[in-house]
Amino acid sequence: MEKKEFEPKIIAFVCNWCTYAGADLTGTSRMKYASNVRVVRFPCTGRIDFMLLLKAFAEGADGIIVSGCHPNDCHYTAGNFHARRRWMVLRGLMDFLGIDIRRIRFSWVSAGEGAKWAQLVNEHVETVRELGPYENYKKAAEYLKEGMYNG
């Protein structure tokens, strides 16, 4: 019963040219999807700083979506290729630290894939709903507030 009340907070980091436009298309096609997602628009996936993902978790996000142009479709030719490597390395590191990488969904959604965007959001909301609130990370984040350190 408790699980049902949990509405995960999802932050989506998307590029302007493909996924943001794809999500716009979802809108113009009036396809419905879960309202848990908040989209942050970047010019390119290459611009997405991995620190922002960490900060989102620290600030209370339960799940993250990162999406950009399909390979070879990047508006800037190579930003998504660089981003892909960065994520590959980051994912490995996060997993090794015990950060729940199931909570981060990486995808490519083009400007024409409005339906894919809706599906992506719905799927990830459900995945994270299953996983529950990201208490571990929040606890670490709230360490200070618990009075263990009073510097």
Binding site: F42, P43, C44, G46, R47, I48, D49, F50, H75, Y76, A78, G79, H82, A83, R86
Partner: peptide, 20 residues
């Protein structure tokens, strides 16, 4: 062209992207 790939890559955060 303002893609910002260098911005996210720069370790010392010495590059920034105007507008983003």
């Amino acid at each position: 062209q303002g893609c910002g790939t260098c911005v996210a890559f720069c370790r010392s955060k010495s590059i920034d992207l105007q507008g983003f």
